[in-house]
């Protein structure tokens, strides 16, 4: 088998490249054109909602992957970035009248800035202390926001609806989330190919050796942590506006952060397509569970059980496992 592929190698390579390019083209056209269905026929509101929700989660999973996948530092508190993005957009909108559609890149940068500061503190150590600090971060952020009256405290803050005909109101969100998802995936793809990405992977394998090899490990980790907050912050900015209501209970429960982790690990952390596959499967399953059981308690159980099963049986996730067995379709192999 190995000789076969070795001989067929170059041809296969171009084949794979062509099929990847065609696949990518189809995806781009399809996602851009999809809302036309709503414009011309109507009745696709639910599907638009699902699609933009999916894009958001792709953005989140791909971002989490930078620190949790490439660098191997598991963060259970990335929903803090989600909240920072959401609340900074809400403040800019409610108090300064800046639409989140204009402000969202800034909100992403704000959350990235917070990421840098937090990372400088929590990434001073190796190993388990970081994970602990991410849990503490969520709980701390929740207490702070619950008691910050300026933004409504635990009652939350309401935002006005986007002023558009109701059948079109989802379209701007759709395209914005699509752009965010594309940006996030592209960032992951680039990081993976930069020297920086190589350094992160060295860190995840053996941090001591990476350091000895001259990689500025602390700076790299911190930068990875901050970068992974960028697009999550943007997603949060628009998500709050989309819901027209933000409260700490929506953004800052452990369950929210747990789902970020689950999606990425399910798909395959450390890969490019893994977070996308993970998000698609997870969102479909989640929709099924919510429709089926409704209750948040069972949602928590399902999240936990799924995570357990993945960790015990496919710790490398779907894409990682397929890749190791040589069964990964070329269109999913972007690494």
């Amino acid at each position: 088998m190995s000789t076969d592929t070795a001989i067929a190698g170059p041809a296969d390579q171009t084949d794979a490249n062509r099929s990847r390019r065609i696949f990518l083209g189809i995806i781009i056209v399809a996602t851009l054109a999809f809302p036309l269905l709503q414009v011309f026929f109507g009745g696709f509101s639910y599907w638009l909602h699902m699609a933009l929700f999916l894009y958001m989660n792709i953005a989140i999973a791909s971002s989490w992957n930078i620190i949790g996948g490439f660098a191997g530092y598991i963060s259970l508190g990335h929903n803090v970035f989600f909240a920072i993005g959401g609340y900074s957009a809400a403040i800019l909108f409610a108090y300064f009248g800046v639409s989140p559609f204009i402000a969202f890149p800034l909100c992403g940068l704000i959350s990235m800035g917070f990421g840098f500061i937090i990372g400088m503190m929590t990434l001073r150590t190796r190993g388990p202390t970081f994970i602990i600090s991410t849990i503490a971060l969520v709980l701390l952020a929740k207490i702070l926001l619950d008691n910050w009256d300026y933004i409504g405290g635990s009652n939350g803050i309401s935002l006005p609806l986007l002023d558009m005909p109701v059948e079109y109101v989802k379209l701007p969100f759709y395209y914005a989330m699509l752009a965010i998802a594309a940006g996030s995936v592209f960032l992951g793809y680039s990081v993976r190919r930069w020297k920086f990405g190589l350094g992160l992977r060295a860190i995840s394998q053996d941090e001591t050796k990476a350091e000895v090899a001259g990689i500025p490990t602390r700076f790299y980790k911190t930068l990875a942590f901050a970068l992974s907050g960028l697009f999550i912050g943007m997603a949060g900015a628009l998500w709050g506006y989309y819901l027209t209501y933000l409260s700490p209970a929506i953004f800052l429960t452990i369950l929210v952060g747990a789902k970020f982790v689950l999606m990425t690990i399910l798909g395959g952390r450390g890969t490019i397509s893994g977070p996308i596959v993970g998000a698609i499967i997870f969102i479909s399953a989640n929709e099924f569970f919510v429709a089926q059981f409704g209750a948040t308690e069972l949602n928590i159980v399902a999240t936990g059980v799924l995570l357990l099963l993945v960790l015990m049986f496919f710790p490398e996730g779907i894409v990682g496992t397929l890749k190791r067995n040589g069964k990964l379709p070329a269109i999913l192999d972007w690494d």
């Binding site: 598991i74 259970l76 388990p128 994970i131 452990i254 369950l255 747990a258 982790v261 690990i265 928590i300 159980v301 999240t303 936990g304 059980v305 995570l307 357990l308 960790l311 015990m312």
Partner: peptide
């Protein structure tokens, strides 16, 4: 550590 996290959720 993630296994213990999942157990906590369950």
């Amino acid at each position: 550590v993630l296994v213990t996290f999942a157990m906590a959720l369950v």
